[in-house]
Design a protein around this nucleic acid. Sequence first.
DNA 1: GCAAAAGTGTTCATCTTACACCCATGA
DNA 2: TCATGGGTGTAAGATGAACACTTTTGC
Lengths: 243, 243
Amino acid sequence: MPEEQWTPPPVLLAVDLVILTLRNSRLHVLLVERGVEPYRGARALPGGFLNNSDEGLEEAAHRELREEAGLDASQLHLEQIAAYGEPGRDPRGRIVSVAYLAIAPSLPEPAAGTDAVGASWVPVDDVLCRGIELAFDHYDIVVDGVERARKKLERTALATAFCGSTFTIAELQQVYEAVWGVRLDPRNFYRKVQAVPGFIVETGVSRRTKRGRPARLFRAGKRTVLNPPIMRPNRLPGEGNHE
Amino acid sequence: MPEEQWTPPPVLLAVDLVILTLRNSRLHVLLVERGVEPYRGARALPGGFLNNSDEGLEEAAHRELREEAGLDASQLHLEQIAAYGEPGRDPRGRIVSVAYLAIAPSLPEPAAGTDAVGASWVPVDDVLCRGIELAFDHYDIVVDGVERARKKLERTALATAFCGSTFTIAELQQVYEAVWGVRLDPRNFYRKVQAVPGFIVETGVSRRTKRGRPARLFRAGKRTVLNPPIMRPNRLPGEGNHE
DNA sequence: GCAAAAGTGTTCATCTTACACCCATGA
DNA sequence: TCATGGGTGTAAGATGAACACTTTTGC
């Protein structure tokens, strides 16, 4: 913090949301269609400006979550990704956006009660492969958000945020497979997650029915840091070099 | 990004720096002493407001690095930590700060040619144990910055940013030990870092002198992501629960 | 009974750890 | 020569991948 008399230039602050969920075993992100210029017609992350000078950043994220995605703030994971402030990122002027990552459990609703036009769940793969054009620098933000989720699956209980209040181990495995984009051995995964103290706890009421033997139901434990961690399978030795 | 006609409230944007370095095998952070209210006399992170509406966030971080710490922007690691924007974090008004983490190699100078009064390197342990009072929410920012560095040592070549252009494996080990606050077996560390392709490369000119057998000199390789990673020794099973 | 999914046991390869030991230098 | 730190070998234990096999359900 500086000591100058000179008054620093004010900037406009926005909050954008990367809301991830699983829909039929694939990772999806919530996108809205822009109704006005710039980038009219393109898809963008839900978000908006700070309401007033007294609104906190996370508070604004919670409000947007409610307004634009119809998701209740409580009981869903929310964390900051980063601030995006390159001059020129928004043609309307100097706007700095603070991006948040939200994880929602799989819900039956199509895209939740949204008031923004054209809100829809889009497979993350379609976005990452640039099959869908995003407004502003929102592509970068999605990349960073997904990467954050991928990393946090290893050492934190983030995966349970994708599940309902109770879940089977197979469902938990689908979270890891969808977010990491890999296949895991169900038998080894089964033991591995149970070997982490406090990660998941068995609800006595064990069963559920679909096909085959019923599975025990678990709920998220209190422990948020995983020890030992659930490590992502090794990429082949000669590979990836991005930060 | 919203579509409202209403004009959002502008906020002031600041940039704060967590500059880490090693000084005689201990992790230090650069702090300045505040000359004006609020928090006059307390220590704070170096930083300042955006210069003008055209200055980028990282650009501002580079400028502060030069102005307040006398460190050349080029060839030192710089990455964003997060945005800190709770209303009330600064008694002067609504100020949102974007914090950056910088890693500087061990330099002979006491605190570098600073123009801020009372800039000094402070052992990170003294800050984390709250032995030193920091202004604003700068304690939280230091915690987040150090935690970021600790995590990135495992999977990235960040440790080499603490070293000069060439370094011995023992020096690299001191980085890991100081940042993680653990002791490592030199023999096992020696082989482990060399087993990561592209992490460090041997400079033909191998020697250096102090006491005992001379060590080979290495420089940072091109690979920034470590595979396999250098994992932090396991904390005991019943432990830590913070996010 | 059969298919399918849950859950268990076991093997083999790999990695980690601990530590004995040798090497090259300054004093 | 001894002390000191650099560098190598190796064996025991822990971990992880692969996969055969048993259990419990719906049909």
